[in-house]
Structure formats: structure tokens, C-alpha cells
Design a binder for these strands. Structure first.
Lengths: 124, 124, 124, 124
DNA sequence: GTGGTCTAGACCACA
DNA sequence: GTGGTCTAGACCACG
């Protein structure tokens, strides 16, 4: 693992990846995450960067840390249940806003999207 | 003019606005843009920021600078004709990619979007 | 036993509990405490943590360790007699100091506290 | 400036000080704070530590940062108006909780506090 | 000049 | 072993 975009801080990109792992059930409620140091080695990144990622996710009530034991996915399943929905809402919100700024109206947006998806692109 | 979002550099937000002016034909091919200085005053922004905006748009072949005369919208109409379409494609591409990563399939994406737009949010 | 706050080290929370047991006479002067091992099992905690708790209370002359025999509440009753009063004084001192730094005067402090306690919060 | 307690991270102690400056009106709404580097020199601390302080306060909507311009006290006066009250509530909450754990009832708490304040201690 | 991010490496408290 | 904090120093984007 070595590749990150430049448009967004690494620690937030990692946070996004972890959110996706949780949403896709590859990380389940209560499960332990790799230690900061292991994570840092795996992603070839400084431990402080992982630390920031974990802190951010803890601030969002997605992870919890237990002193001296490690970092875990929260056990509060409502938090996680919402996560998928929240991420989706955020994406849609951003998308609609940009399209709106470009002067597209709702019907045009949906049509454009349908046209795109029907071509099968993006879902090979 | 004084309000900018914080999530995106001001110079790019200004670039977006200029693109929109072009797409909506308020700025036509070959037309002269205000000087950096005037722009800076109008948007209440540092001239360096406008400078960056113009550079960015030049890099995208949307503007051209003629030394001693000012900055103009390109005369190469093909560049402009496609602009709206290109911007739209980019947005859709990014959106679909993100949704796909979160495990949504095409139908779910369209449904989610319709649900969102029907509620009227984002288009008050 | 499994629940601890996260804002304060577990070993100090345990020390507080033991102090309370002494103040409330559930542990009397000279009485023997459970072994570190038993305590650790009872509280479902690492033995090192109990070790620290006992050390801390020894440092405060509340417990004494007799080699080979175990850990006991001190027999010096003056130490214990004052305990409740000392703890209270410490709390009040800290509280008043913080409120003072925030610019509250004595009357405001008492009023604020009364207002809070009358609402019944904190004493459900 | 060189002295910090050890019981609490420096960056949070600095955050507390800044909150007090705001509550006591020594820092007013919209006012610019010293740059991270200047602050770091003044408190004889690493710039990263100040950075954390500012980030934390921004997360609490007390400070805002303007790209390339600096860090400012928020102009949203409601946020600041609440601040004094919030800090007070927090202090009272902590205090009452500790006293409660020690077995004091509301009347005893108020009496103890009054006794303490009447002696004039803490308000020389 | 401003804040934001990142690395390298250290030390500490906690379990 | 774990996470949390801090320093030192670097580079970058932004205005």
C-alpha cells in the first residue's frame, strides 16, 4: 500500500477507507483494528498519521479506544447502521450541489445519470 | 462578494464561477475578462488569488493571456462547446465511483437520487 | 465489575472506590484487603492495575503492605478519620479555584450550585 | 511562560486558557489570535502543539481559521455567549459528581461550600 | 506570512 | 504491548 491522492490529506483518505470497510461489513462492531504501529507499516506511513485517522474516527463515534488494549469498532450498532446512510447522503448532497451550480435541473441530473449507467460504464 | 466555502480553495471556486459564466454564455468566446486587479477588488480577494484562477483556466485551455492586452476567453469554440458536457461527465463519474465503492448498485443510486430530489431539498 | 470512565485512569478510579469503602466504614482500620490477584479477577482488570492502585494508596499512607502477609488498611486512625474531610476540602478547593478563574464571585458560585441541585439533576 | 501541569495535555491546558481569555473578554469576537509560530515561541512550545490547540477550539466552534490569514475568535456571538455558561455547568457537574460519590448529600455540599467561602479562603 | 500535513523519533501512562 | 503527547524540522497550499 503506497498510493494516495494529493487532493485530500492521507489521514482522511485512510478514515474513508476504514468507513468503507465498516459499511461493507469487512470490519464488524466491536472488532479490533490493527495497532497504530502495524497500520503505519502496512500503509507505509508515519504512526502519527494513523493516530490522526483513529482520533478522527473516534471523534465521529465510529471507533473507540481502550487504554493499553487497542482501538476497536464501536459496539453501538446504531452508529454503524447510520454510517452507510450518512455516507450516501453526503455523496448525493455534494453531487447535486455541483450539478445545480452548473445549471442542471433535477430531471436533467437523473437523465444524465441514467444515460451514464445504462452504458454500463463504471460497473464493468 | 465575500462568501466562499472553506472546503475548497478560493481560486478554484472562482475558476468554477468563470466556467459557469462561460457555459451560460454570459462570457462568450474571445471576450475579454476584467483585469486581475479589478477582479480582485470585485471579489474582495487578494490579486494573487485571481492570478492563480486565471493560470488554472489557462492550463485548461479555457482562457488565453495576450501580453499587454489582458486575459480572454479562448476563441477555440470546440473547447467551450464541450465544457458543459465535460464538467457534467466528470461529476457523474466521480459520484458513481464513490457510490460503487460503498456497495450501491445502479438502481439503488438512481433511487437514492430520486428520493433526494423529490423531497425538494437542494433546490429550494 | 467492568465499567470504568475513560477520563481517568482505572487504577485511580479503583483507589477512589477503596477510599469510599474506608470512609463508609465498610473497610475498617487494620482490615486486610483482598490479594492483588483476587482483586484483579473481581474487577476484571489486569493485576498490574491493582498493583498501581495499592501503591498509590500506600503513598498516601492509607494502606500498608506487610511482606508475605498482604495489604492492610492503616492502623493509624488519624489518617482515616480525616480522610472524608480531606477529600471534601480538596474537591471544594479545586472547584472554587476554577470558578474564580472564570470570574465568578462567591455568591454566584453558591447560587449556581443551588440552582443546579434544586433541579434535582445529579441526584436522581 | 513555561509551566504546565502534568495531569493534562499541554494543548488542552492552552485551550482552557484561551477559553478563559474569551470568557473574560480579553479576547473578543472576531479578534485575531497570534500566529501559531508566535504562540509557540511565547509559550515555549512546539508549533504542532499550538496547532492542536487551535484545531480543538475550531472543532468546538470557538475559533475559525481563514486560509493564509490567521486564526480568529468566531464572530458568532451566540457561541461565545454560551461559553461562560457551558464552562460553569461543566465545573459544577464534575464537582457534584465527585461529592456525590463521596457520599455527601446536596445540603451538605452547599453547607461545605458556604463554610469554605465564608472563611474568605480562595478569595483573598 | 498564514495554517495544514507529514515524517522521524522520543517519552510517557496504561494494561 | 497499547495509544497519547510532544519535539524537531520539513514541505505544501493559500493569500
Amino acid at each position: 500500500m503506497d498510493e494516495f491522492d494529493t487532493y485530500k490529506p492521507i489521514y482522511l483518505q485512510l478514515a474513508d477507507r476504514i468507513k468503507l470497510l465498516i459499511v461493507s461489513q469487512e470490519l464488524k462492531a466491536g472488532e479490533k483494528l490493527p495497532s497504530i504501529r502495524d497500520m503505519a507499516i502496512f500503509y507505509n506511513v508515519n504512526p502519527n498519521t494513523i493516530q490522526r485517522t483513529y482520533s478522527e474516527l473516534e471523534r465521529e463515534d465510529i471507533l473507540v479506544t481502550k487504554r493499553g488494549q487497542g482501538t476497536f469498532v464501536t459496539e453501538q450498532k446504531e452508529q454503524l447502521a447510520d454510517l452507510r446512510g450518512i455516507l450516501k447522503e453526503e455523496q448525493i448532497l455534494m453531487f447535486v450541489q455541483e450539478m445545480k451550480e452548473m445549471g442542471y435541473n433535477p430531471d436533467e441530473i437523473i437523465l444524465g445519470l441514467q444515460h451514464y449507467l445504462k452504458k454500463g460504464r463504471g460497473y464493468e
